[in-house]
Design a protein around this nucleic acid. Structure first.
Lengths: 257, 257
DNA sequence: GAACGCAAAAGTGTGGACACTTTATTGACG
DNA sequence: CGTCAATAAAGTGTCCACACTTTTGCGTTC
């Protein structure tokens, strides 16, 4: 069976008819987003070797933009590169995820603290307004929506810290844990999420850094433990799906642990 | 005047004779390190447009590995990419640097805290041993050596936190502020650096997280103010050097702010 | 029949070509 | 003279070709 990628997912790239040669001038960019999406959505499985030729065929572009995309993804931690052997999907280990959650907690807590110090009332107002605009029926949203809204909420705090580096770091971390977060959100319909966010907003209004940091830490801590469980589901979900891109016979990279 | 890059710096790439075709299989990797070094050392100036053809000629490889290297450098924040216009050296603004120092402080303080919680005596021993091995005549080293040793010291703390993400984040941040740190170290021969490190080690041995965090914060804070001054020197150093690669008439990228 | 080695196949790494876009240059027009 | 348009030059984005490396497959040997 020749390995093929779900066309529905990839369509975006080949969308605009392309009988004749090149003209788009952003194949790399689109390849980057498409492959990244495949990674986030588990279409490409952990430890799997990425075949450049196959990817280029699937996305309808040559290997050059594929490689440029993979290089970017490599420095962002989505994939790894072994010389002369190619790119591999980042492995999915519990420890690695816990580390990322820990990093996220650090960035977010620091962001909140700085926001309390620096943000003026109008800026804090943006946070309360945003939360007010999504709080109604928050839990009734589909998981994808919840995920986006939750990420936006936390990202807004990072932006209000006044340090754009914090915001971009958080965005990068979010992208890397998104795949597991989505699964975790599907599993746990915890109403405490809502009250937790409300309390965080309240602490922000009072400029109560200590309280907010504690809330955030617990908020994230809570998800970490849920993640442990979600991970089992994830692994199941990954290794049982029939439309695997790579052929069934899966082998670990012999050069890595 | 055709723009040329100091050959002495670049030599590393063409070092091993290459009359006949290709065979190395790591041109991208070497291009990455070479260009990164050029950026760190100010050989390539802020806001300057990077000419791929020229770079490829200078480094003796084709544009393909150059572009792969630039893509990686782009996602690491060293350069930016504007479609159809190419790669530009990250601009050198005070605010941006302060943000990076702040991020560094956040990562380091969190690392220290975690190290105190998690590292066993043998691991703390590595820290004390490393510091003991470099403390003698620390300030007498050339600036480059001081920089490397200082970075290693702080990186070791991040590693001892037990969270590899923290270590890799810190390494990335260090690379981005290295160019200004070097200049700053040249300027300020502050003996407090030494005692500061010693105190940090002492706090680590006592597992005194609060004390260590305070020391680190002050330690970095101190450098930030020195950086403000160093920046003036840097800008001078950059824009007065006669063999500027960019022509005198300097224009900002019209598509950016 | 298991281990080894050799040859074919698959796959990555890089050079080079060329279309399209941006930038620089030239010349006409006000 | 300065502004604008047309044109030429330079530069990027992408494809393709091919060398070199790794992996697979097969036959040979003990």
């Amino acid at each position: 069976m020749t390995e093929r990628i779900d066309t529905e997912t990839v369509e975006t790239l080949t969308g605009e008819a392309e009988q004749e040669g090149r003209r788009s001038a952003d194949s790399s960019e689109r390849a980057y987003h498409t492959i990244r999406k495949l990674l986030v959505e588990f279409k490409l499985k952990p430890d799997e070797r990425l075949n450049e030729v196959q990817l280029s065929r699937s996305l309808g572009v040559s290997r050059t933009p594929i490689r440029e995309a993979l290089n970017r993804l490599a420095s962002e931690g989505f994939v790894s590169l072994t010389p002369n052997r190619g790119f591999f999907v980042r492995s999915l280990s519990t420890e690695g995820l816990i580390d990322l959650y820990e990093l996220r907690s650090i960035i977010e807590c620091a962001s909140f603290r700085l926001m309390c110090e620096r943000a003026d009332d109008a800026q804090i107002g943006r946070l309360t307004a945003y939360w007010a605009s999504i709080v109604d029926g928050y839990q009734d949203n589909p998981p994808d929506e919840i995920l986006v809204k939750d990420e936006q909420f936390h990202l807004l705090i990072a932006e209000l810290s006044g340090n754009p580096e914090l915001a971009s770091q958080l965005a990068a971390i979010n992208a890397r844990i998104r795949f597991i977060r989505r699964i975790q959100i599907e599993r746990t319909h915890d109403p405490r999420q809502v009250s937790s966010h409300s309390e965080i907003v309240a602490a922000a209004v009072r400029r109560d850094a200590e309280r907010g940091v504690k809330l955030l830490r617990d908020h994230i801590e809570m998800t970490v433990s849920a993640t442990q469980e979600a991970l089992k589901d994830a692994l199941l979900k990954v290794y049982t799906s029939t439309d695997s891109i790579i052929s069934s016979r899966r082998r670990r990279n012999p050069r890595e642990g």
